[in-house]
Measured scan of single mutants.
Amino acid sequence: RKWEEIAERLREEFNINPEEAREAVEKAGGNEEEARRIVKKRL
């Protein structure tokens, strides 16, 4: 699934746990840019 690939990239890029990465992607509706913004806000 594409969402899992996005979550994996976010996890590696921001050094967050898989659960946090998945939550961000879900919140963003699968949009990678939006997920990235969500993760950055949390850091």
Rank of each mutant, 00 (worst) to 15 (best):
R1C: 06
K2S: 13
K2I: 14
K2V: 10
W3N: 05
W3K: 14
W3G: 14
E4T: 14
E4W: 02
E4R: 05
E4S: 07
E5F: 12
E5I: 11
E5Q: 10
E5P: 13
I6L: 14
I6W: 03
I6H: 08
I6G: 03
A7M: 11
A7L: 06
A7P: 05
E8I: 08
E8Q: 13
E8P: 04
E8V: 09
R9C: 05
R9E: 09
L10A: 01
L10C: 01
L10M: 13
L10Q: 01
R11E: 09
R11V: 13
R11C: 01
E12Y: 01
E12Q: 12
E12P: 03
E12R: 11
E12A: 08
E12N: 15
E12T: 09
E12G: 14
E12H: 03
E13R: 06
E13T: 09
E13C: 11
E13L: 10
E13K: 03
E13Q: 09
E13P: 00
F14N: 11
F14V: 03
F14I: 03
F14A: 07
F14Q: 05
F14R: 02
F14T: 11
N15G: 14
N15C: 03
N15A: 09
N15F: 10
I16T: 10
I16L: 13
I16D: 01
N17D: 12
N17C: 11
N17M: 07
N17V: 12
P18E: 14
P18C: 06
P18N: 01
P18D: 02
P18K: 02
E19V: 11
E19H: 10
E19M: 13
E19C: 06
E20V: 08
E20W: 09
E20K: 05
E20I: 10
E20Y: 04
E20N: 07
E20M: 14
E20G: 08
A21I: 02
A21Y: 01
A21W: 00
A21P: 01
A21C: 04
R22V: 08
R22F: 02
R22Q: 11
R22I: 03
R22D: 10
E23C: 08
E23R: 09
E23L: 09
E23H: 07
A24M: 11
A24I: 04
A24H: 04
A24Y: 04
V25M: 11
V25R: 00
V25Q: 00
V25T: 03
V25N: 01
E26G: 08
E26S: 06
E26D: 14
E26W: 05
K27L: 07
K27A: 06
K27T: 15
K27I: 01
K27G: 12
K27D: 05
K27H: 04
A28L: 01
A28E: 02
A28Q: 02
A28C: 11
G29P: 01
G29S: 09
G29F: 01
G29V: 09
G29E: 11
G29Y: 04
G30R: 05
G30P: 02
G30D: 07
G30C: 05
G30A: 05
G30H: 02
N31H: 06
N31K: 06
E32D: 12
E32R: 05
E32M: 14
E33D: 11
E33T: 08
E33C: 09
E33H: 02
E34D: 08
E34N: 05
E34L: 05
E34T: 13
E34P: 01
A35G: 04
A35T: 02
A35P: 00
A35Y: 00
R36C: 04
R36M: 12
R36K: 14
R36P: 00
R37N: 12
R37C: 14
R37L: 10
R37I: 05
R37H: 09
R37A: 13
R37Y: 10
R37M: 09
I38F: 03
I38C: 08
I38W: 14
I38H: 11
I38G: 12
V39G: 02
V39Q: 07
V39R: 01
V39F: 04
V39L: 07
K40I: 13
K40V: 13
K40N: 04
K40Y: 05
K40S: 14
K40D: 13
K41W: 06
K41G: 11
R42P: 15
R42L: 09
R42K: 09
R42D: 04
R42H: 15
R42V: 10
L43E: 05
L43R: 11
L43W: 10
